[in-house]
């Protein structure tokens, strides 16, 4: 790539990255106050990571504190954390059956982490790290690796590879192996992370843009559309939950699909199935 092309790319990237499409956060304010400071530039470059880490630390401290105080009759935050954990456990087991218990920590962490990152954009001087594709892609890649690892662990490498090859059972199936390999590899390793990450990223960044535009309108029309912004905030709160839930639901379904089918079907007997085969 030539220097000119690199320059253009850098300019486009910079413009895309720094275009004002979100409400200002603490780091953008610092960046504006200290435009030449290298630390402000560094913080601005890693702002998504910093806000994501803030959410992660908050979740960790709350969850670990709640987990330490285990009593027969829970009180305060224990009640809340146990209600959340029990709800998530019931949801995951509802889809995966009793064997879903071991996937609750991953799927639960995923839900709470994404939800808190989505909501953090609603707080003044904060931003949603999930409005950046980098963040959502990282979480989606982690999910993809986790799902494939679960497939190998639960099915064994041979059956996993057979699953990737489309489970050929006759000559026709064998002939279709190259095609099935391409389709399955594309779906499992490309479509899954892309669909998961883009859906979340697009929704959350759209919410943030909407809130920004309403704030802009409020400035232009002296607070006249305030109630519209309030309504948008309520919608953003609800949609953040929905997006986190959809991410977790799809991850659960991917795990369900990669698990050995006969066991899974056996466990599903006697209750309504939520299969997406």
């Amino acid at each position: 790539m030539s220097e000119a092309a690199e320059g253009v790319h850098a300019a486009v990237a910079h413009a895309a990255h720094h275009e004002a499409h979100e409400l200002p956060n603490l780091i953008t304010v610092l960046r504006q106050l200290f435009p030449d400071a290298s630390w402000a530039k560094f913080l601005h470059q890693w702002e998504n990571v910093l806000f994501a880490l803030t959410a992660a630390i908050l979740i960790s401290i709350t969850a670990i504190r709640a987990a330490r105080k285990q009593r027969l009759v829970p009180e305060g935050i224990e009640n809340f954390s146990e209600a959340v954990v029990e709800g998530l456990e019931a949801f995951v087991k509802g889809i995966l059956g009793e064997q879903g218990q071991k996937y609750v920590p991953y799927l639960g962490t995923l839900f709470i982490y994404i939800l808190l990152m989505n909501w953090s954009g609603l707080l003044p001087l904060f931003k949603s790290p999930t409005s950046s594709w980098g963040t959502t892609l990282a979480v989606a890649l982690a999910t993809m690796v986790y799902v494939q690892y679960t497939g190998i662990r639960e099915q064994g490498l041979g059956r996993y590879l057979k699953h990737i090859a489309g489970n050929p059972s006759n000559l026709f199936g064998l002939a279709l192996i190259p095609l099935m390999l391409v389709i399955n590899l594309t779906v499992e390793f490309l479509a899954v992370p892309l669909s998961l990450s883009l859906r979340l990223f697009a929704n959350v960044s759209s919410e943030d843009r909407l809130l920004y535009k309403f704030a802009e309108l409020n400035v232009l029309f002296k607070g006249l559309p305030f109630f519209f912004q309030l309504f948008a905030n309520v919608l953003a709160i609800a949609f953040s939950v929905v997006q986190a839930f959809v991410f977790m639901l799809l991850s659960t379904v991917y795990i369900s699909l990669i698990l050995p089918h006969e066991n899974h079907e056996h466990e599903q007997e006697g209750r309504p199935a939520l299969h997406v085969h």
Partner: peptide
């Protein structure tokens, strides 16, 4: 770089929570 750091951060958070929060909470429940 951001994707990589976010990935590592998420994995660390997951493992920390799994060991220190999820296991005791689920066990307690």
């Amino acid at each position: 770089g951001e994707v990589f750091v976010q990935l590592i951060a998420f994995v660390i958070v997951f493992w920390a929570l799994k060991l220190l929060a999820w296991k005791p909470l689920l066990k307690g429940l």
